[in-house]
Design a protein around this nucleic acid. Structure first.
Lengths: 347, 347
DNA sequence: CAATCTATTGGGAATGTTCCCATATTCCTT
DNA sequence: AAGGAATATGGGAACATTCCCAATAGATTG
């Protein structure tokens, strides 16, 4: 049985011309007779011909496929970055293979190998919370395959990346808490493996410093983002001799889990404890009271990441990031104030 | 410059044997000398050889790639189905290309063409809310490419599918409302283009019938899932001469949007109006009061869909669904009762 | 009018892999 | 010991495409 797909050769045979001519006609090569071209295009249309990108990839050694590697797709953050990236990629004629690894380092390494085996033209990455070893990414770079990081980046590696100003965002979030009169502000931070954690923590510390509020080490805890553990840490905060009057968390799911615990303890939000999250997940708007949080321009992060990658792919001179500083894009955040820090008017 | 990837031929040259032998050694063909095999495997390991799935796809005319086509990835429903499907697919040595189309019919048609051009071995689909014409799916089937639907299916087409018992789930959800004493139960339904809508609506109607509650056509509205419009319909319900004392919605986002409107009107949930959603999105647990809803076994839906697809792909006899009835899997749902219908004990 | 140019086309290599067929070697079996 | 089976390997077609290098024909130019 013949293949269920029609090829360039089928068209060539039907028109009694060579496959080279058909190829040229379809790719818009200038040196092909206008009449020949239109006959080819017409038949291709009629037969609903689709060129085989796999064969194209083999022949030209570039696949027009981009790998997108994210730790998870269950929150709204990564899906919306992906959507933004795909928008730009599609426009430029590229397609994306999306890989997620449920925050597992091993799965991440396997996925990079998978993407490489597909000869992708470039990879956009936000690494897992477990990733401390970046050899697999370094290998990609050494092979000359364009790579872009977003959100979670690394000091060790010189990779083009797009981030938000985590430091400033955290600083402003904490300053907001100070401005509404809070003085004992707890911070439930993320794992040290994530650079964002460090930056946000520094923003937290510097905001306190600026307003001459002493830092209480009891009020800062780093945790591994396993939501089940939030209860323990929040309880710990609440049972301190001097419990906090505000809480700033590494992300929105953490804040929402914390709010649940606080409410169960019979405390009121924001009266007893004001809460601020990070990222403006869809759910931040849905919970009650609404969660004050830092909004990230997720779509734009995806778009920028795709743009950076395409620059590297299409640039004629290969950028050697072992010599040259990799470009980075830093996008603005916005503090969204809701009822978890400020009571609504007229309520 | 040579390609940055090493091939079977590179290995063959270094070992002074033919590429055929290398191929056989790597694929585990029996007729290859154990020593030769181990030498090949060793060198392959050392060079970090990865076989090129594009070339493999060309040569064998099957790519081991599965297309997954969903209307959106911003809610938790589709991502978790995808995760379930990928689990089964990976285990069987397949990889997935995920396409989403933001509920746009045109994008859906383009995406199916894209997947076909990649010569995917099969496609798993949940169509858009706009899809009324199924020609593009029929074409896939006619070409003999295995196809599986989930969640949103079609009467017109005989395609293997996995669904939940929407009728029964809706029936039980409404019965729950009746059991807690509600008599004027409104239903905000989805668009007629979705089969689920019809089934859930029938469940709603039959539950009322069973309990001899007259159906009030004013209390049933179909809408197109554009959340912005929920406000209008809920206001309409609330301003009826005899407003409803309960609301059953097509999905959780709708229910949550409705709750917002109800609260703004100064009404209490569940005292004035009890609310039930559908699907048990992550956010159903987060809102306050917690949303009573129908939980779907999302991961299992994905797994089942993948299993059905793999059955068709690997079966030696091609199933001709123009003659034979396509298999279908119906999974159980579970009503999750939260505070939007029943007040918590001791509160 | 011959020589060169140009527009259009065909042929075949190359991409990486599998798979069929042929070949060579070794080992049994009668 | 000879024939046949079994084992191990090589060669080359095939998959769909691009791209380079001819080759042909007609057109232009000196």
């Amino acid at each position: 049985m013949k293949s269920k797909y029609i090829s360039i050769i089928d068209i060539a045979k039907q028109l009694h011309i060579s496959k080279s001519t058909v190829s040229r006609a379809l790719t818009g090569h200038p040196s092909v007779h206008p009449e020949t071209r239109s006959r080819v295009l017409e038949l291709a249309q009629k037969l609903d011909y689709q060129r085989n990108p796999l064969a194209l990839g083999l022949a030209r050694n570039n696949t027009n496929i981009i790998g997108i590697l994210v730790p998870e797709i269950m929150s709204t953050y990564f899906p919306s970055v992906i959507i933004g990236a795909q928008e730009v990629l599609h426009e430029a004629g590229y397609n994306a293979i999306i890989c997620h690894n449920n925050e597992s380092y091993n799965a991440e390494v396997l996925n990079t190998k998978l993407l490489l085996s597909y000869h992708v033209d470039g990879i956009i990455v936000s690494h897992t919370k477990e990733t401390r070893n970046f050899d697999h990414f370094q290998m990609i770079q050494r092979r000359g395959i364009p790579l872009v990081f977003f959100n979670r980046t690394s000091d060790e590696l010189n990779v083009p990346h797009v981030v938000v100003d985590d430091y400033e965002a955290a600083f402003r979030a904490v300053e907001h808490l100070i401005k509404i009169g809070r003085r004992r502000i707890a911070h439930l931070a993320g794992p040290d493996s994530l650079i964002n954690t460090k930056l946000r923590q520094q923003g937290y510390l510097d905001a306190l410093k600026k307003h001459k509020i002493p830092v209480d080490p009891d009020l800062v805890i780093s945790y591994d983002l396993t939501l089940e553990k939030v209860r323990i840490y929040i309880k710990h905060f609440l049972e301190l001799p001097q419990p906090p009057d505000a809480l700033f968390t590494i992300n929105d799911p953490t804040a929402i889990a914390a709010m649940e615990v606080i409410r169960q303890k019979g405390l009121s939000i924001p009266d007893d404890i004001a809460v601020v999250g990070f990222s403006n997940d869809l759910s931040a708007r849905l919970v009650s009271p609404g969660l004050t949080t830092v909004a990230q321009p997720t779509f734009e992060i995806g778009r920028e990441a795709a743009r950076l990658l395409l620059q590297d792919i299409t640039s004629t001179v290969k950028n050697d990031y072992s010599v040259k500083k990799a470009p980075s894009v830093m996008l603005k955040t916005k503090l969204i104030i809701r009822e978890s820090t400020v009571m609504k008017q007229g309520k």
